[in-house]
Simulated assay, not measured.
Amino acid sequence: MNRSRTLPVAAVSMAAAAALLLTACGGGGEEDSGKDKIAGADDGAAKKSASPSAGKSEVPVTDRPKMPLPKDVSLVFDDVDMSDPDQAAAASDAHNFARAIRYGIVKQNMNDPAYKFYSELKSPAQAYAKDQIKQRVDKGLTISGEMRFSRTKVTPAENKKTSVVSFCSNSTKLYSKEVKTKKVHHTEPSINDYYSWQVLMTPSKNAKGLWRAQKVQVQDKAEECR
């Protein structure tokens, strides 16, 4: 595996997005395998902080893990302009979940707290993130280059307790890099570099303003994302 890209996963469509919502009815989202417990372990342990002047009616701000990337790695997310604050928060944290997977890869830590913070404890999304990182670590690979994310949309459930965040990713300029030798495996761009994501996001019960991934599906060779 030369390019840093997603290994084959189940194909998704808008029907899959609907299925994600239906399977999460009333509550309670996967991507790249080649190319798990929340930072604090669970909702109740998530750190929270509020402005010194915040009154009881104000929403606490969740302390979020920092995810600094090396100079040779760039993750670019298109701006998302949504008037609904919940949809905007769900979209932002779905992006953070994707970022946390890449961060775990560059840190070479399959138990990195960042992806655990942005996914539900013991959820399929958390297991997926861990597997993505583990596959790279086992192969002695990290990443180098640029990955772009675009076309973000949010589909809320009828009860508005969960939302499916869909977006595209472009890895034409993202490559695998050997950890020991620092050798970067450059490859030619192809349809294999485009992915369509569907991430089921659910709001944290105790950490206000935080949304976490519960389930995730990714379609590889996504022509619609070109």
Rank of each mutant, 00 (worst) to 15 (best):
D112P: 05
K48L: 11
A98D: 07
K37V: 05
V184R: 01
K107V: 02
K161W: 08
V199M: 14
Q87V: 01
Q87F: 04
K47S: 05
E30N: 13
S51F: 15
A90C: 04
W197K: 12
A157T: 10
S49G: 03
E188K: 15
F77V: 03
V61M: 01
I133A: 12
I105C: 08
R151Q: 15
D79C: 00
D42R: 05
T181R: 06
K215D: 11
M110I: 06
S150N: 08
Y118G: 09
K107C: 10
A24Y: 03
A125P: 00
M110K: 13
G34W: 06
D86I: 05
I101K: 08
E188Y: 11
C225R: 04
V154H: 02
R226V: 06
L121M: 01
T187H: 08
K183G: 04
Y195C: 04
G55A: 11
K116A: 15
S169W: 08
T172I: 06
D193Y: 03
A11M: 12
A91R: 09
K173T: 14
Q87A: 02
S13W: 02
R5K: 13
S166K: 09
T172E: 15
Q219R: 14
S204N: 14
K37T: 11
N192Q: 10
I133C: 04
A11W: 12
A114C: 09
S171Q: 09
S57I: 07
S176T: 01
L69D: 08
T202C: 03
S53M: 13
A15T: 13
K177P: 03
Y128P: 07
Y195V: 08
D43C: 08
K182P: 01
K205V: 00
S49C: 04
L22G: 04
D43G: 13
Q198R: 15
T162G: 04
L21D: 02
L21H: 01
I38F: 01
I143K: 00
R3A: 11
V154F: 07
L75N: 06
N206A: 14
I105T: 12
Q198N: 13
H95D: 11
T142D: 11
R226W: 10
